[in-house]
Nucleic acid binder design. Structure first.
Lengths: 164, 164
DNA sequence: GAAAAAAATGAATAAATTTGCAACCAGAAT
DNA sequence: ATTCTGGTTGCAAATTTATTCATTTTTTTC
């Protein structure tokens, strides 16, 4: 009967939603509805909510006090377990300096270790600074170096026994 | 009242929240509140909402019809695009550690920010050390971190309001 | 092609989350 | 100590998002 547009409705909406989210900053569903409207696509907030769930969309804090929609898949799942395991072996020493942790590694590996620590995303660790074979792990105020060492042990199991 | 000074309240709450979210599946803020309660940490849902925003937590569709809270591995996808022209936008956080100022930036930008600070030539700033996405601004002896923050505000107008 | 089954949608509603505001608290400045 | 200042919080209200239910649309099956 109708060889024409059959059920493109849903699909084109999904595509439009993705385009909107990828191209501009949107921070509420109502906002998306409005933009869809301008593109000639109409749907209710209920449907949009379901669509976002299907697309795997998340509302992330933008770090500036607001939120924005984004795709989960863009926030690459971390964990390169094996690489992490190898990294334990490049660590040569761990000492405490001025309430911070100083780690010596094989030449060229400091940055990899630092990135691994950063990716672990522990709040207690304010940050890391890496040179070529040395990195500094800086605890937040009121966080003890000992606590940080425990965290490091979690990230790099066996690390302390190896380095004494 | 409490004889002890408690500034750790906030920090320990953030840490607890992170632990909960990393270790178990939670799908609503009320649920997190309950678990915090069992750990002896009490706060309202409003505060939790704000904490989640600060921590960069998102509610992601779990692909099974439900949702779960999770951390966004790498913050701020689009900021990067806009950031190329304005260094202020690559600055993600500024905190005080050990009397120094630790600045986190988008990946790869720490050095640019450090150079900008160095070039500004303020006597109060003894020097900077930059890694890939983190830099340390070291005040001269007897120069307060707060003062350094003021200087930073001069170099990067709007910096604090954005990262606070 | 018609009936049955499955999927999708809107309206209304419930549930969950965010925010404005005033109070509060700790630290810095005076 | 007293005042300022900036940040944190709870409360209540506002906003935003998810879901229930009834209905419609599409797909499947016979």
């Amino acid at each position: 009967m109708q060889p024409e547009c059959i059920k493109m409705q849903r699909i084109s909406r999904l595509i439009a939603i993705e385009n909107i989210i990828r191209s501009e900053k949107v921070s509420s569903q109502e906002e998306i509805i409005r933009k869809l409207g301008k593109m000639g696509i109409k749907c209710t907030q209920a449907t949009l909510s379901r669509s976002l769930k299907q697309l795997g969309v998340v509302k992330v804090p933008d770090g500036r006090g607001g939120y924005r929609y984004s795709f989960v898949s863009d926030h690459v799942p971390q964990i390169q377990a094996e690489a992490k395991y190898d990294l334990v072996n490049v660590i040569r020493s761990i000492i405490e300096v001025k309430g911070m942790i100083l780690i010596k590694t094989s030449p060229g590996y400091a940055n990899s270790v630092a990135i691994t620590i950063d990716n672990y995303g522990r709040y207690e660790i304010a940050g890391t600074i890496a040179g070529d074979d040395t990195l500094l792990v800086i605890p937040r105020d009121n966080v003890s170096p000992a606590h940080v060492r425990n965290i490091l042990e979690m990230i790099f199991p066996g690390i302390h026994s190896m380095t004494g």
